[in-house]
Amino acid sequence: VTDLSSIYLDILKDRLYASGPDSPERRSAQTALWHILRLLLRDMAPVLSFTAEEIFGHLPADLRGPEPTVFALQAVSGEEFLLPDGQRDDWNVLLAVRGAVTRAIEPLRRDGVVGHSLDTRVTLHLADELRERLESLHTDLRAVCIVSQLELAPLADAPQNAYRDSEISGLAISVEKARGEKCERCWIYSTELGADPAHPSLCPRCATALRDLPLDENAKGRAAE
């Protein structure tokens, strides 16, 4: 509830729904979910036996492995999935910043300026040390915070009315309405909407994802018509 659903899956939805089917970011997400599911099933099986077995039975055969039943799943060492302590600390800092972004957006939601966090453009004004820690993770901060646009700026440039969180030093957050128009497929605002004439209401990423989709026989027939 606290880690998987409200954080990881919430962030992951965009790439699973909107990225190209064979894109590295979507396939890597699916791989991570496969590992997570097998770990959960193995731990659930002794307690929720019928539920775990039913879920296992619905896995595609190629993903199920050689085991005939969920009760035959072998123990998996979690060591390879663990982060070094220093990197884990940096991720915890990022999650704290994510929480601060959510709190900074809330007044705009309450006043009806925005309806969803994707309606916003966020600027993180950061002290040098905090910026280095976030950048060292090499992750998409915009996607983690679930906003349409995100920029980093020096803390000294933060305006007087920027949101400052008492729990995080070296951080100020400016929030405004996202620039551009809303992509009707992924709901992310873009200033490049309609760059592809074939998809005037889509952002470049979504237009590329649709352009790269293989056409089934029906689609080929409609295209020929």
Rank of each mutant, 00 (worst) to 15 (best):
L210K: 13
L215N: 12
I146G: 04
E80V: 13
S77W: 02
P200C: 09
S169F: 04
V101Y: 05
T120L: 09
V114P: 03
A96V: 04
C183K: 00
D128Q: 07
R133G: 02
V144P: 00
P197V: 03
L94G: 03
L108F: 15
D89H: 10
E79L: 12
A172Q: 03
L137N: 00
E106P: 00
K220F: 02
V147I: 10
S148V: 05
V144L: 09
L126Q: 00
C145T: 09
K177D: 03
A198Y: 12
W187V: 08
L82K: 13
L83A: 06
E217F: 11
A207V: 11
G194K: 02
G99M: 08
H138W: 08
L124Y: 00
V97Y: 04
E132M: 09
S201E: 13
G194A: 10
A153F: 03
R133V: 01
G86T: 12
L213Y: 04
Y163L: 01
G112N: 09
S201I: 05
P107K: 07
G180H: 05
V93D: 06
E129L: 07
Q87P: 02
R133Q: 11
A153V: 09
A172T: 00
R133W: 03
L82A: 13
E80M: 12
F81W: 07
E80F: 09
C186M: 09
D128M: 02
I105N: 00
N92A: 05
G221E: 14
C206H: 05
V76R: 13
L126V: 02
E151A: 12
V147N: 04
V113F: 03
Y189M: 07
L108P: 02
L124V: 08
A198F: 12
A172V: 01
G180I: 02
S136F: 06
C145M: 13
L94A: 14
E176Y: 01
V113W: 01
R109Y: 07
D85V: 10
V113P: 02
R98S: 06
A223P: 01
T191M: 10
E135F: 07
G221W: 14
N218W: 14
R222T: 13
W91E: 04
G112M: 08
A104E: 08
R142W: 07
R185H: 14
A156C: 03
S77D: 15
C186P: 05
C186A: 13
G78Q: 08
R211D: 14
S166Q: 12
L141H: 10
V97S: 01
I105Y: 08
V114L: 08
G115I: 01
R222E: 14
D90T: 14
A209E: 06
L152M: 10
D90I: 12
W91Y: 15
G221R: 15
R133S: 01
N92V: 05
S190V: 04
V175D: 03
S174Y: 09
Y163S: 07
A178H: 04
I188W: 00
D157M: 04
A219D: 08
S148L: 07
N161M: 10
R133H: 01
R205W: 02
T208R: 15
A127N: 02
P159D: 12
N161Y: 11
P204K: 09
T139V: 15
